[in-house]
Each structure stands twice: as structure tokens, then as C-alpha cells.
Design a protein around this nucleic acid. Structure first.
Lengths: 183, 183
DNA sequence: TAGCACATGTAACTCGTTACATGATTTG
DNA sequence: CAAATCATGTAACGAGTTACATGTGCTA
């Protein structure tokens, strides 16, 4: 009866504004893609399920290609289950981090080469941090006041962005420490 | 031919010392479980595959129950593929964080209730941090010198522990910020 | 005119979880 | 003597990825 996690990702997007399946697939790369992703082949069947459950509705609009283009909107029931789910503690999901798993066996790698790997990783965190910092400036420019009002979608978006900023800084600093140890 | 990620997790453990399938399953909860987990039903078939590929070998030892107990050890070939894999950049895996996905829809939740969720989360990070700090003291006590030698398994373990410490501090601080915003 | 963005769907496969199944030894 | 721990395996299922499949409109 309740939606899957992917379903809640889609409902979270549709609670902000109506979108087509294609647009939802795109959004699952950015901004939600920072913490949840899905390919379009997963999105379309899930939309059909949410529709059948009455959590979303669609209107057919004309578009290109051999099939109808549908624009989806969240229903009152959908908003209700989404709010319920968001207000419930997250089930502790197992962390899987291939990079850390490699670090666990990094003692088998020649130190100079290991250092290169870590420095490359550091650069990626640095780049992502720069990207997030730009997003933060954009957000502050567009929505100044609503960022401190916890009942606006902007507040939630800003909170996740702050998490991203914090995470990248920690990851960068740890890479810098490790690169130094491998010197 | 090459092993799966789970295979490399198992090889990473066996590169340190021989173990039975049962012991490997336990180790995939802690310490490796901090960044990679698997259930025993996944471990046993994977061990059979690694064995068939010649990356590990086993000796039958006597134990309880209707089946043989096997103790596995890594082979030279296994150590080679593990070192190769560890020395190669990690494939950027999609981040999936159900908790952040909930924060994305937290604007639909009554702020006082939302704050409770975040404070509970903060407590979990605090507890994990305390746990890691204890592990760090233990590690420093047992292996003082080898922690700065990048060719020892202790160095790798210590590096992942430092990552855990850094991560928990960042997560705790972000929760504290968000809880304050929801006040 | 070739490629890309738009737009939607299905099929085959891999990875991981939960449940099923068996049976000895130790501890409360 | 009941429950937990040791110890190993299989089966059914769900979630997610990659590849297959179709067709339009715009741009270099």
C-alpha cells in the first residue's frame, strides 16, 4: 500500500510542482540526485503504481513520439502519505562505500600510487564543494527570507544543500590528512 | 573473472588473516560493516566463486553441524587482484540516503515534530562518535608505531576509522544546526 | 543529415534481503 | 531444557542497472 523509497522521492518532487515522467527522471539526477537517483526505466513503472494507488494523478498533454506525454500532480492522499513518511525515523540503511573499502586494502598499494588516488579524490570533493557554494549563493539570492521558514520547500532544499557543503568539507579535509600521511 | 565488490570486501579481510565463512559474515558487521555489509546468505556463494577462481583456498576443519567447516586463506593470485583493485579509482556509486530524502520533504512535517526527528538523529551520531573515539584509543594503545606506516593493515584500518570520526562530527554538527533552525 | 533532446515504455540481468532448512555445542 | 551461538547452505523476492525499442523536432 505504502510507496517504495523511490516513490517517496517522486512524491517529494511532485509536492513542489507537477512534472512529466521525463522531467522527474531528469530531477533524479539533480537536485535530488545528490542523495537519490533512479533511471527512467525505474521511474515509469513506479509512476504507474503511484497513480494506481491514488497518490498522484495525470493529465495527457500532447508531445512528440509514439506515446502520450503525461503530466503528473500529487493528490491530497499522496501529500498525506509523504508527510507521514517524512515525519518517521529513517530505517538505518547499510552504508556501502566502495572507496572506503579500497582504503581498507590500501596498505597493499605502493604508497606513491596510493597518494595519487587520494589526491584525485580530494580534487573531486573540492570541485563538488565549489559547485555547492555556487548553489548556495544562487539560493540566497533567489529566496532570502523563506530559507529560514521550515514550512517552505526552499527551507528543506537549503537544509540538504547545507548537508552537502558540510559533507564535502569533511571529506576534503580527511583526504588532505591521508594524502599527507602517504607523503 | 574479476571479483565483485563483495568479493573484494572478503579478500580485504582474508589478506589480514584466514577466517571461516561464519567469521567473515561476522566481520562484515564490524569493523568492515561500517562501510560494507552482507548477510551470510550472500557470503557463502561468493566464497565458492572466489575459491573456483583461485583467489582463495580452504582447508576443512572439524566443527559442529551437518556440514563441513572451512577455513579460507587468500592466495597469491587473490592478493594480486585485490592490490590491483585497491589501486584503481572507485567507480562513482550513486549516493542513496533515505534520511536526506526525508529532509527534502521535511517542510510538510510540523516543525516541533521535525525537530524531534533531527535531535534523535543527532544523538545517534553522538553515540557513534563516542564509539569511534573509544576504538581510536584502543588502536593507539595496541599499535602505536604501525599506524603511521602505510604498508601495514593497521594503517588502512586507522585511515577508515579517521574517516568515520570525521563523518560523525560533520553529521552531528549539521544536525545541531538544523535542530536550531527548527526551534 | 547526423546527432541530440524530448518522451515513454519493456526485458534481462545483478545485487542484496528475508525466509527456509539443518544440526551441534554451550550457557542460563 | 530452552535459548543463544556456532556453522553452512538454498529459495523466493525486490530493487536497480543496462540494453532493447520507438518515434518526433531541433540544431550544427
Amino acid at each position: 500500500m505504502a510507496a517504495s523509497t523511490l516513490g517517496f522521492a517522486l512524491l517529494g518532487l511532485l509536492a513542489r510542482q507537477p512534472r512529466t515522467g521525463y522531467e522527474l527522471s531528469q530531477a533524479l539526477r539533480r537536485p535530488i540526485g545528490y542523495f537519490w537517483t533512479a533511471s527512467h526505466s525505474q521511474v515509469y513503472p513506479e509512476l504507474a503504481r503511484l497513480d494506481a494507488a491514488g497518490y498522484i494523478s495525470h493529465t495527457v498533454i500532447d508531445g512528440p513520439g509514439p506515446r502520450d506525454t503525461k503530466r503528473y500532480a500529487i493528490t491530497a492522499a499522496g501529500r498525506r502519505v509523504l508527510a507521514d513518511w517524512a515525519g518517521t525515523p529513517a530505517t538505518p540503511a547499510p552504508d556501502r562505500d566502495e572507496f572506503l573499502l579500497k582504503v581498507y586494502s590500501l596498505w597493499l598499494v605502493e604508497p606513491a600510487r596510493a597518494r595519487t588516488l587520494i589526491v584525485e579524490r580530494l580534487a573531486r570533493h573540492e570541485a563538488q564543494l565549489t559547485h555547492y557554494e555556487q548553489l548556495e549563493r544562487d539560493m540566497r539570492g533567489e529566496h532570502g527570507a523563506s530559507l529560514s521558514d521550515p514550512t517552505t520547500p526552499q527551507f528543506s532544499s537549503y537544509a540538504t544543500l547545507r548537508r552537502g557543503l558540510s559533507f564535502e568539507r569533511h571529506a576534503r579535509d580527511w583526504c588532505a590528512w591521508l594524502a599527507d600521511e602517504l607523503r
